[in-house]
Design a protein around this nucleic acid. Structure first.
Length: 552
DNA sequence: AGCTTGAGCGCC
DNA sequence: AAAAGGCGCTCAAGCT
């Protein structure tokens, strides 16, 4: 037994025996402890091996190293475990080539080291992984809130498994439908370079309207000059500025920009690059965003535009279950602030409408704008003017975000509900210069104020976005577990897409209803896991649809 | 020739 | 109507 209460045996296997070893030892009660899920798990999935649980040392290190709740723990003293900026070089790699296995109760721990060759039992890399695991366990155990942190690490690690599985399965993608969309919108694919025909036609219209036979609308500089020369009072070529101007060039130009976006971001080149065998294998970067949200690597998986979603179609005999959590962040805010009146307003499906019904604001649109202002820190316009009404109705909720903003404005650190902390500002000159009474009024103080408020908006949003990401991870993890017990010879339902507060499951039709129920049940579980008996609801809209475009 | 930066726009 | 929080991707343009 080690200092953190773990009992373990350990041994080493050569790398080529890794998958067999995992397969032989895996059972429901096992939690694999390994250096990096994105490194180890894909090769298991290739072999058809699915594991139930893991502890991802790299992801958990990143959380614990930065958390206010584990300040001063030994985890911070081992930078070798820091997130690699780039894929680890071969020499660094060996450090991470370790894994261990513990049972769910963490009463015993067997460790398997997987060195580059047949490494001895006392392989230093293997020891380092075990040492890091102990440091992490110690950091959690001696933290202010071990229960919440443990949940965060479990959820993050489960997310890493789900991310690898989603990449492996891929989103079902019909290239014939995608191609049809591109043909209809842009014209046929150009054979020898050059723009698609329908785009070229708009270029001709743009040139005619500007009386400029050569202007290239893809060049912002050229375009801006041409617009000014034609007498338009614009300072940029952005579409929200152009929309305000009346001129014959505007319509074809905005149409061209829309087409150009589709062509460059999700056109034929995208299809060739990212869709293989009818699947878009999106790569997620778990914990890739400071708030704990995921990022994506290649293919823009988290920015699939509405215009191509019709190409996401279930296989024959299968269907999609698309679910999203309604108004997640405001509900999260009510829970983390313990604001009973706001939680009460969120009972039912439409939080925004209930703000209208309670006479807090006059229209649903205002409710939405006001709430976004509270979450993002709007200081101007309509949403700022609605804030006092919100603050009066929900003093605890608004108090929490205001406090988070004030901490950030002073250069401080805030944390999510489960203990992910905001990054420290790189340079807090602005906080110092506001504290310093010698800073002159006028430009210097204004600049400091502006930067300070900007960081305050970040920390304000961090607690809501980050806590919502934690809920989403609990939701995803719970759903994944529920799905794992479904299925038969025809196949089993699996997650194929995750987008902040939205999930997509590809399932044999026979299980569609069960999946939709699982999605709801997992959402309720996630709320209880994070907030216990606090009466907050997380309604989830789940739709069974053949195509992503048909959902919502 | 290859890298970085900024504008612009898609997603939540 | 836009903007405020978080991203990624593309291009052109400017740099080394």
């Amino acid at each position: 037994m080690d200092a953190s209460g773990h009992v373990f045996d350990s041994y080493t296997v050569p790398e080529h025996q890794f998958a067999d070893t995992v397969e032989a030892l895996d059972e429901d009660s096992v939690r694999w402890v390994w250096s990096d899920t994105s490194h180890w798990y894909p090769r298991l999935l290739e072999r058809g091996i699915v594991v139930a649980r893991c502890h991802d040392l790299r992801l958990c290190h990143a959380i614990l190293k930065n958390s206010e709740w584990t300040a001063g723990s030994e985890v911070t003293e081992h930078p070798a475990w820091d997130m690699p900026a780039a894929p680890p070089s071969p020499s660094e790699n060996t450090l991470f080539d370790d894994l261990s296995v513990a049972d769910a109760a963490q009463a015993t721990l067997e460790a398997v080291s997987c060195g580059a060759s047949s490494a001895p039992v006392d392989d230093p890399n293997h020891d380092e992984s075990l040492a890091e695991f102990r440091r992490q366990a110690d950091a959690v155990a001696s933290s202010d809130r071990p229960g919440q942190l443990s949940l965060l690490l479990v959820a993050e690690s489960a997310g890493a498994l789900a991310a690898a599985e989603m990449k492996f399965h891929g989103i079902p993608w019909r290239t014939d439908i995608h191609n049809q969309i591109l043909n209809d919108t842009l014209g046929p694919r150009p054979q020898y370079g050059g723009r698609p025909a329908k785009m070229e036609a708009f270029v001709a219209q743009i040139r005619a309207a500007l009386d400029n036979p050569t202007v290239n609308p893809d060049s912002q500089q050229e375009l801006l000059k041409a617009l000014k020369r034609a007498g338009l009072a614009v300072s940029s070529t952005s579409k929200w500025e152009l929309r305000e101007v009346k001129h014959p060039v505007i319509e074809p130009l905005l149409a061209y920009k829309k087409m150009s976006r589709l062509y460059t971001a999700n056109g034929w080149n995208w299809m060739d690059t990212w869709v293989r065998d009818g699947r878009f294998h999106a790569e997620y970067v778990v914990g890739g965003v400071v708030t704990g949200r995921w990022a994506a690597n290649g293919g823009g998986a988290l920015q699939l535009p509405a215009t191509v979603r019709a190409a996401v179609v279930a296989d024959p005999g299968w269907t999609l279950v698309v679910a999203d959590a309604a108004q997640l962040e405001p509900r999260i805010l009510s829970a983390i602030s313990g604001d009973l009146s706001m939680a009460d307003a969120g009972r039912g499906t439409d939080l925004y409408q209930s703000l209208v019904d309670r006479g807090i604001v006059d229209t649903r649109d205002h409710a939405k704008v006001a709430m976004l202002g509270a979450l993002y820190g709007s200081t101007t316009g309509r949403s700022a003017s609605l804030m006092p009404r919100l603050a009066a109705a929900f003093p605890r909720a608004i108090g929490l975000v205001e406090e988070a903003a004030r901490v950030g404005e002073k250069g401080g650190v805030v944390s999510t509900w489960l203990g992910r902390s905001s990054p420290a500002a790189e340079d807090t000159w602005w906080a110092e210069s506001l504290r310093n009474s010698d800073t002159p009024e006028g430009a210097p103080r204004d600049r400091a104020r502006q930067t300070s408020r900007s960081w305050g908006r970040f920390t304000r949003n961090f607690v809501c976005q980050g806590s919502a990401a934690e809920w989403a991870m609990c939701w995803l993890a719970g759903l994944r577990t529920r799905l794992s017990s479904m299925g038969d010879a025809r196949g089993r339902p699996h997650l194929v897409y995750f987008l902040h507060d939205e999930v997509m499951v590809h399932t044999p039709q026979a299980y569609a209803e069960a999946v939709a129920e699982a999605v709801q049940a997992a959402a309720a579980d996630a709320g209880r896991l994070m907030f216990g008996g606090f009466p907050v609801e997380f309604p989830v809209g789940a739709e069974i649809a053949e195509s992503y475009a048909d959902a919502k």
